[in-house]
Design a protein around this nucleic acid. Structure first.
Lengths: 135, 135
DNA sequence: TTTTCACTTTAGAATTATTATAAACTAGAA
DNA sequence: TTCTAGTTTATAATAATTCTAAAGTGAAAA
């Protein structure tokens, strides 16, 4: 993803492309593979990488803004921290609790044959499959 | 589950059946259906129900002790609080984010036809299916 | 180009869930 | 009954996240 696209991405979702947002967006979206992170790990990586320090509150703000705009998805992982994923398509995860690492699973790699119907007037929003790994 | 069984359950897992543990265990396990809760909701319900106040720290201690003993399972739910479940068999969940309510799905009600193999030397510990509901 | 102002950033305080601490208490073996 | 390891408790500490309010800044309009 080129810089122009980053600007387009931000503007098209109503986010003013500030210095901080562009820097974070470039870090998150200018990569080939999907990226999984927590706010804490993102902060650590950004601090290491860049000259200008971005406030932790700004990282929280930005990540939430990106999530609301649909540029990031939140992954449910047992534990205290919240994980985010640059892969916003419908997909699933392996989770290695030894390393606290998430690995994407393509939606097409899991086929569910039988599923119960939603209770009392509710509908199914989405189905998430989470595969815990061990050694 | 009768009181004798509660005592047996505690003792058999190396937990001294103290007044507090018995009270919490009775509340959690002397019921027909599975029960889902957070420490906060359990604390609220216990306070309402009983005469003697149990310290919040004790509820945390006890819930963790029960979990370690295999009498409770932890459910991964997006968000800040940790959910527990009196159903410790292999099963899945519906989650209604409107009401923050969890509903059990019997393991036999979900059949997965295709599943990817675990990465590099890892093995699959377990597979959790989480179905988000909407109205 | 300058002005203007709603949107942003920021540091630090506040909040919330959870864990740690250490003193008082107690189940149950001796 | 005595003793002691295991337990409970109030409170402090920690950790993740959100709030606050003052200072800063994109970008539209003058």
């Amino acid at each position: 993803m080129k810089k122009t696209d980053i600007l387009k991405k931000l503007r098209s979702s109503g986010l003013r492309p500030t210095k901080q947002r562009v820097e974070i967006a470039k870090f998150l979206f200018e990569r080939e593979k999907t990226f999984h992170f927590t706010v804490e790990s993102l902060n650590r990586l950004l601090t290491k990488k860049s000259v200008s320090k971005i406030a932790l509150a700004t990282i929280y703000n930005t990540v939430h803004a990106f999530k609301t705009a649909g540029h990031l998805s939140e992954v449910e992982v047992r534990g205290n921290k919240t994980y985010f994923d640059t892969n916003v398509s419908n997909h699933h995860h392996f989770y290695d609790s030894e390393t606290s690492e998430l690995i994407d699973i393509d939606a097409s790699d899991i086929v569910i044959q039988k599923i119960p119907k939603a209770p009392n007037g509710k509908k199914i929003k989405n189905v998430e499959v989470f595969i815990n790994l061990k050694n």
